[in-house]
Design a protein around this nucleic acid. Structure first.
Lengths: 336, 336
DNA sequence: CGAACCCTTGACAACGTTGTCACACATCTG
DNA sequence: CAGATGTGTGACAACGTTGTCAAGGGTTCG
């Protein structure tokens, strides 16, 4: 900026006035300054600008996510981006893989860069990094997951109700021996989904069988083998509720590997690509990640804009989509 | 910081020393300061810190992407993130949807926040926003696409060779009437893929038929209908090369819709989820987006670290993966 | 016992920007 | 024609931090 001022033969302040189109600058000078700016390729330093007006927003928000490369989360991010753009804001994001330390690091990095707010998928967070931030008044919105001991605005799918619906759907098609494959129970959505599964079973008097439940934190590509092995080493269930998108993919692959895809029924939680092209099509309880992202960001920007209302919870339910896999009936129905 | 200093009864500088563990502070004071810091929940302002040491890095890079919610790109982002984390850097990202203005806006936003470098998927960029940045010496790496008039480091898949291989594969299975469905020719990868397709055909003396080529910029979910309509209104090709991931998904859906999936051969460019579970499995020329992201980021951080070597181009080829759809032979082979 | 040293601490300037104010000069008003 | 008003411009402080330097106090050494 100094260089520009010197080149145009004016003071900093005049340059500043031109850059910000404040007016009150004669045309002659304004032109000279504009010329100098483009000759030197000068860009105002946003950091310094925001530093000076220290009450001003930084025009950036942070998104702490479990894994961007999971299409569910990347769609959430896309939704957030859209709203952020409309508010002239930039999105910084980072994946945690559910690692507590990484989560803390990311939040620290965002906070120390003075983001205007945070959207967090809190996978490991009884953490008090977040607690401190909330107390300081940093706007924070949770998305997808719900931490047990922290309170802030929240937007997520109705994991419980969706799972009840999925399980009831299988029961309605004659199944009583339904396996549950899902994420690690540390993850709040996974707990809720399992609870929904159990509730639906219990409601019709089916006992919960621990052998029918597999919950684990695996890499996306590991589920295929795990489920195939399960099916090879256990008495086979007549139906499966695969309670997460990667699990659903792995499950579908495993069923095809063993040529059981027309024998064992499957309902998944969350949509997957080509879910309607596989044979049979995969019956799922969909989520709407783009929408989740938009809503979360909308809530965040309301807070950033000064909304001091009560903490809100948006819990979104979606009806099951039938495509075939969930409507397979058990092969034999032995009298019991 | 002032508050902390006051509370601990010391000067700013001492607080600064404690925060940065500079040493040379007595234990008594250090403890008092540490106490004040945690009581007040103080976080140093990274912006001010970096402002003061104006030669220092900001610890942030920008990623200008076409669409984060495309799994291909979100995997690239994930790869970038990994490397960035290892370099203590944050990633800001934004989707352009190939819109030039949006691209310029994003680059501006990143540059004025003084990112240490940029990774760009240059979809609309003859733009001189970027040219100016390159001239100023901002480290920039292009990924996936290659702008015609700008020079910087580049990491991408071998779109041309991959497409030659895909087309040759179909030819080798007896096809001479092969349709090409792909992205808009504005996009450099799309041009290269089409060129590869044409080269392979021409090499064996097959004429290029414009009616067999559809290139367009569509929303991901539009391809299904477009391709179905094409197949309903045109004499049917015996094989299809679907030259992008969303196109491949739409094509597979359309083929299933019309029950042509066992009749018409298909080879896709880029992997898609469940590509091995659909019947038949989808033969593809894979890309390795995670790896592309890692390499691009690695190159960028080398530059940021001061590497002034010649501009590099990494062009990565991968062998075709056969899964069934690409090995379908034409129904009848009329003498011609 | 005084000089030379080390250690801890603080005052001040600086980073790149904008807000505040005052100054110079031109123009209007009574 | 003096005073009031308006217009363009620049000097300076401030944002939150760190680098530089000097001062204060204690220790060591001759």
């Amino acid at each position: 900026m100094r260089d520009v001022a010197e080149r145009a033969g004016v003071s900093f302040k005049t340059v500043s006035r031109v850059v910000n189109a404040e007016g009150g600058v004669s045309e002659v000078l304004a032109d000279r300054v504009a010329g100098a700016i483009s000759e030197l390729g000068y860009r105002p330093d946003e950091r310094a600008r925001r530093l000076r007006q220290s009450d001003a927003k930084t025009g950036a928000i942070g998104f702490v996510i479990v894994d961007v490369s999971n299409p569910f989360f990347s769609s959430v991010l896309r939704g957030i981006e859209e709203v952020a753009t409309a508010h002239d804001s930039i999105v910084m994001s980072g994946s945690t893989d559910g690692d507590k330390d990484r989560e803390r690091q990311l939040i620290d990095a965002f906070v120390s860069r003075r983001v205007d707010g945070l959207i967090v998928v809190p996978e490991g967070s009884t953490d008090n990094t977040l607690r401190v931030e909330i107390e300081r008044g940093t706007p924070i919105v949770f998305v997808d997951l719900e931490p047990s001991e922290l309170t802030a605005d929240l937007v997520r799918s109705d994991h419980h109700l969706g799972s009840v619906a999925a399980t009831e759907h299988l029961i309605a098609h004659g199944h009583r021996d339904i396996a549950f494959f899902g994420d690690h129970p540390d993850i709040s959505s996974s707990r809720l989904r399992r609870a929904g599964y159990e509730q639906a079973l219990t409601a019709v008097g089916i006992d919960i069988d621990e052998n029918r439940i597999v919950q684990d934190r695996l890499r996306p590509d590991e589920w295929r083998d795990v489920i195939r092995t399960y099916l090879e080493t256990h008495e086979r269930p007549t139906a499966i509720f695969s309670a997460q998108n990667f699990v659903t993919v792995g499950c579908t692959q495993a069923l095809h590997d063993l040529d059981l895809h027309t024998t064992i029924a499957q309902v998944g939680f969350d949509e997957i690509e080509l879910g309607d092209v596989v044979t049979p099509g995969i019956t799922t309880v969909p989520q709407h990640p783009l929408d989740l992202g938009r809503r979360a960001a909308q809530t965040l920007f309301n807070r950033i804009g000064g909304d001091r209302g009560d903490v809100t919870k948006e819990i979104i339910a979606s009806p099951i989509i039938q495509r075939g896999s969930g409507e397979i009936r058990p092969a034999a129905t032995p009298a019991d």
